[in-house]
Amino acid sequence: MEDDEIVELFWQRSESAIAATQIKYSKYCRSIAYSILRNYEDAQECVNDALVNVWNAIPPARPSVLCTFLGKITRNLSINALEKLKAQKRGLGQVPLVLSELDECVGQAECEALQRAELEAITDAVNAFLEQLDAEKRKVFVRRYWYASSLEEIACDYSMNVSKVKSILFRLRKKLKRELEKEGVSL
């Protein structure tokens, strides 16, 4: 089934949209979640959460590329899940909870808006940076920092050795830092 048809099913609030999405993109989403979490059960849980989020987001959203829309949601959920898991492992299970409770006192809406604006500025700078790069370096960068693929996986997929991937990423990080400073983004 084509992406447009699946999106249309979401707009009609048809549950077959979830099944169609699952058939077409569950493997893709699971690979993203697994790259971040390195645990099959947690990855599967994130994929299920992502499908629920997509169900809630469409409508009003009408994504032009359903694949990346799903991917972004899965990635964000996986990063959040990873943070929670890390906190639990460290025995700091209550601290994130306490912080989230305190967030209510800090004027959350303003804070979130500010953070979102900052993130958008950084994203624009990163997009400008990626635009300058040649395709190979851009793919390596995205595979590492968007898909969270391991160095070995990237080396294997792009027929390079691991040391070359490392050196490309090292130069790209330096360049990104310079670009962000030039754009006036403070991190």
Binding site: V65, F69, L119
Partner: peptide, 13 residues
């Protein structure tokens, strides 16, 4: 922030 990069770059890789 990298999570919000343009779709074309995500598709490319």
């Amino acid at each position: 922030a990298i999570g919000g990069i343009e779709d074309k770059y995500i598709e490319e890789a």
